[in-house]
Design a protein around this nucleic acid. Structure first.
Length: 838
RNA sequence: GCCCUUGUGGCGGAAUGGUAGACGCAACGGACUUAAAAUCCGUUGGUUUGAAAAAAGCCGUGCCAGUUCGAGUCUGGCCAAGGGCACCA
């Protein structure tokens, strides 16, 4: 027997797999395709055990599907644009390109391959490489052509640490998603947007099609899109018949309770509606509101403030004259930027009315009676004080009121979404340049497709960390000929949000080398949609919503033929560990000082052991806590298999053997139990590892049981009969195959040592012998009143009467029935007998 | 505030409404060894009776009810932790 040296074995097979192109995906192959995808990483430099989880899960799925006979596409690449590279350039004067390249090289060759992953590296994509970002730019131009990319002045979120603006989705709790200690500021800027809102309804509706997605993720997307149905009502302005103020409401049933209007401070009508005596106050308020940070504005404790404009609006339903206010609790970007104030039935309006002393008029009541309100009554109810609509229920009232207003021409139903258009401009260097040119004569002009890519300049770029994007100072690069008039023009200096790059990479994998197009339509239609996507739940909204949007837009551009990119989604839980900094168990990350590197563990115990522990600790969706001790437990499991192999090889003539045996020949022998467990293991592992379940922890437990049973069987055994060596060979051969997707190196090694043909990963997934699982004895549980009294082994298939008789004849049972009335006996054949007494 | 998820031994976790705690970690005992490590074999939810062993009993899946012959599992309410949304009209 030789020692188990994981490092040697693992390196050997990793090289062999690469040399023999074992994991190559073949376009348009005869076998059914299976696209297995893992979210591609940002090349931050050093992967730790926390990162390993997602790659392990996805790799097990890919390897298993190959053994099931699928043509598997399992690609990998790098989301390589982004801030850390640029920050490294500022701090250490290394060009972002070099820093990124070095990290990719390390992650790819020293870490991802070292884990034993089975990627088809021929399809690698690197989003910062010009042959990739050329197509990012080309796709931007398609959006532009279809009027889905546009520029506008808007209040935007600015992260002072990133020195750039952020999309709505990238602001969490008023803070930057990358810097949870940094409040986002509000600024007015002219920026590029993608019109994701045009797809809001489809993005919402098609969530129903995504049966293979976790409910949680779908709910989060649904919340984010935030559809609401209501009405848009036009208020006219007293003595200013040229202006109509549209407001959006979901409660048209409260229209008679309107006692004021509130516009957003940035609302375009504000100056026109401000009377001269209020001008000063209004301007001061607008200025002050603009200065507030996001978090201050959102703060719940913040008291409502606002100022009167001086003009009056007229409620078209009852011609009542009501004052117009501005307040920062009204948002310009949502609805129409103006709300009707119904203090009696909206808590924000109530608060505001109390604060500035406005009339509160009740128009909804639970019982039809009006009373003094100490809070807004926001439930639906009976309509009162509302002229011809009195006595209706809210629901019915809504419809009738909209109908009435519609007839009169000042009201219509309207659907509003919380989702905003996607702000994609970034004031940073290390991103994909937006292919746009500004010409004094011609205006905003897109770069010709044939002149793509607009390369990021490298020479003469200085990273100072201040004074805006380095591109602003790249004089030579900045000046360009206008594509239209050939006159002097200037390049766009903003780059794209890196989420653009990651919104289509999974399409590029289908045709990674193409230099004529972003991807070939036929290839994309062959490979896509992705059959199984694995990634972190932190992208539940961001990346997954953007990618769905891209897919739908590309379908409409005629680039592909499907509606949704990812059929099944698995959101793996975090890997946590105790953080000495935060004094609690929390997500493994460098900044929290609780990382365990991969290299040392792999060298000592092997990637196989790390993979097994990660899979064994909990089901994939759940959080797991890294435990080196626990991982060593899996190392011991592997070593047990290793020793078992040599023991059986020397003593029992172990060989590859996969045929079923005649179960009758085994009856009443201890061997029968081994054969049964082996087949039960095949059955359970096949089920647990399948896409319906993905519970790898129990799969590993079943295999451990088989190994334990085999150990027990061979204990003190000196010689083996032919039948015994056959059954043990059968068990061991199948064990290796079942374990192969999870621990690919050790299984390949032992498979080879057993004389199996290269490679175990190209073998057929085993099937189990149904005969082996048929038993003639069962364990019968005896209960009294639902409590277990006894368990006895008895013949299978006895009638209910027989079982009842067996139970009632037990001494224990008799003693307990004694003196009581037998109410009934419940018999579940081959399972339990439950005796109920009174 | 609204929506959702999760509460099981010292720990991670298993259990189609039918033997709660599979499997692993940790701990303890035994074998092997001059010794230790490793390995192999065991024990390990709590508790009561018992000198001990054997054995037997009772309690036990966050709490309180309910449905059921039978509930970790289903229903309702509560408590706790975690997550999402949050001045979205």
């Amino acid at each position: 027997m030789t020692d188990y040296k994981p490092k040697e074995i693992e390196y050997k097979w990793q090289e062999e797999w690469e040399k023999t192109s074992l994991h190559k995906a073949i376009d348009f192959d005869k076998k059914s395709k299976y696209y297995s995808l893992v979210m591609f990483p940002y090349p931050s430099g050093d992967l730790h055990m926390g990162h390993m989880r997602v790659y392990t899960i996805s790799d097990v799925i890919s390897r298993h599907k190959r053994m099931l006979g699928f043509n598997v596409l399992n690609p990998m690449g790098f989301d390589a644009f982004g801030l850390p590279a640029e920050n490294a350039a500022i701090e250490r004067k290394v060009p972002p390109y070099e820093w990124t390249k070095k990290n990719i090289d390390h992650m790819k060759n020293k870490q991802l391959k070292r884990m034993g992953t089975s990627y088809d590296w021929d399809r690698e994509v690197v989003s910062c490489s010009p042959d990739y970002y050329k197509w990012t730019q080309w796709l931007f131009l398609q959006f532009y052509k279809h009027e889905l990319a546009y520029q506008k002045d808007a209040p935007v979120n600015w992260c002072p640490k990133c020195q750039t603006v952020l999309a709505n989705e990238q602001v969490e709790d008023g803070k930057c998603w990358r810097h949870d200690d940094t409040l986002v500021e509000r600024k007015m800027m002219c920026q590029w947007f993608l019109k994701i809102t045009q797809y809001a309804e489809e993005l919402l509706n098609d969530l129903q099609k995504l049966e293979g997605w976790p409910e949680r993720v779908k709910r989060m997307q649904k919340n984010w899109i935030g559809k609401s149905e209501g009405a848009e009502i036009n208020f006219s302005v007293f003595e200013k018949s040229n202006i109509k103020i549209p407001v959006y409401t979901t409660r048209p049933d409260t229209i008679y309770g309107v006692t004021f209007l509130v516009l957003a401070p940035e609302h375009p009508f504000v100056s026109e509606l401000t009377t001269s005596e209020n001008k000063e106050k209004v301007q001061a308020y607008i200025k002050q509101a603009g200065l507030l940070s996001e978090i201050e504005r959102l703060s719940e404790n913040k008291e409502k403030t606002g100022v009167l404009l001086g003009s009056y609006a007229v409620n078209p339903f009852n011609n009542q004259k009501i004052p117009i206010w501005i307040s920062d609790y009204t948002l310009l970007e949502y609805g129409t930027g103006a709300v009707m104030g119904v203090p009696a039935h909206d808590s924000r309006d109530f608060e505001f009315a109390k604060k500035v002393n406005l009339e509160i008029k009740q128009v909804i009541s639970p019982d039809g009676l009006a009373r003094e309100l100490s809070n807004a009554y926001i439930e639906p109810g009976l309509i009162i004080n509302s002229d011809i609509f009195n006595g209706l229920q809210s629901d019915d009232g809504k419809k009738k009121i909209i109908e009435y207003g519609n007839k009169k021409g000042f009201c219509r139903t309207k659907t509003t979404y919380r989702l905003r258009d996607w702000l994609i401009s970034r004031q940073r260097y290390w991103g994909c340049p937006i292919p746009i040119v500004y010409c004094d004569k011609c205006g905003v002009i897109p770069v010709d497709e044939k002149n793509l890519p607009v390369m990021l300049p490298e020479a003469g770029i200085e990273f100072t960390g201040s004074g805006g994007s380095p591109l602003l100072r790249a004089k030579e690069w900045l000046s360009v000929k206008c594509p239209k008039c050939s006159g002097e023009a200037r390049r766009e200096t903003d780059t794209m949000d890196t989420f653009i790059c990651s919104s289509y990479y999974y399409l590029r994998y289908a045709d990674a080398g193409n230099d004529k197009a972003a991807f070939d339509k036929e290839k994309v239609n062959y490979w896509l949609p992705v059959d199984q996507y694995v990634g972190g739940v932190e992208h539940a909204i961001l990346h997954l919503l953007y990618s769905r949007f891209f897919t739908k837009a590309f379908r409409d551009f005629g680039l592909l033929n499907f509606d949704e990119p990812f059929t099944n989604l698995l959101s793996q839980g975090m890997v946590t560990m105790f953080s000495p900094k935060e004094k609690k168990i929390t997500k493994m990350s460098k900044s929290k000082g609780n990382v365990v590197g991969t290299t040392d563990f792999f060298d000592e115990y092997g990637a196989d052991a790390a993979r097994l522990f990660i899979l064994f600790a909990a089901p994939p969706e759940q959080e797991i806590e890294w435990s080196t001790q626990g991982a060593i437990g899996q190392y011991r499991f592997i070593e047990r298999i290793w020793r078992l192999f040599f023991n059986l090889k020397e003593n029992a003539g172990l060989k590859i053997y996969e045929e079923f045996v005649n179960v009758e020949a085994l009856r009443a022998m201890p061997l029968h139990e081994i054969y049964r467990i082996a087949n039960y293991t095949i059955k359970s592992v096949s089920e647990d590892i399948s896409s319906e379940k993905y519970i790898f922890n129990t799969a590993i437990a079943r295999m451990t049981e088989l190994v334990n049973a085999m150990y027990k069987f061979i204990l003190d055994k000196k010689s083996y009969s032919d039948l015994e060596s056959t059954i043990l060979s059968f068990s061991f051969t199948n064990l290796l195959k079942l374990l192969a997707p999870l621990a690919p190196h050790i299984t390949e090694e032992l498979w080879g040592k057993l004389g199996g043909p290269y490679s175990i990963h190209q073998q057929k997934w085993p099937e189990y012998d149904k005969q082996a699982l048929v038993t003639d004895e069962i364990e019968l549980v005896i209960q009294m009143g639902g409590k277990k009294i006894d368990v006895l082994t008895t013949k299978k298939g006895q009638s209910q009467k027989e079982l009842e008789k067996i139970a009632l004849s037990l001494e224990k049972v008799k003693a307990r029935i004694d003196g009581k009335e037998l109410v009934k006996v419940v018999v579940v054949p081959d399972k339990i007998v439950n005796i109920v007494v009174k």
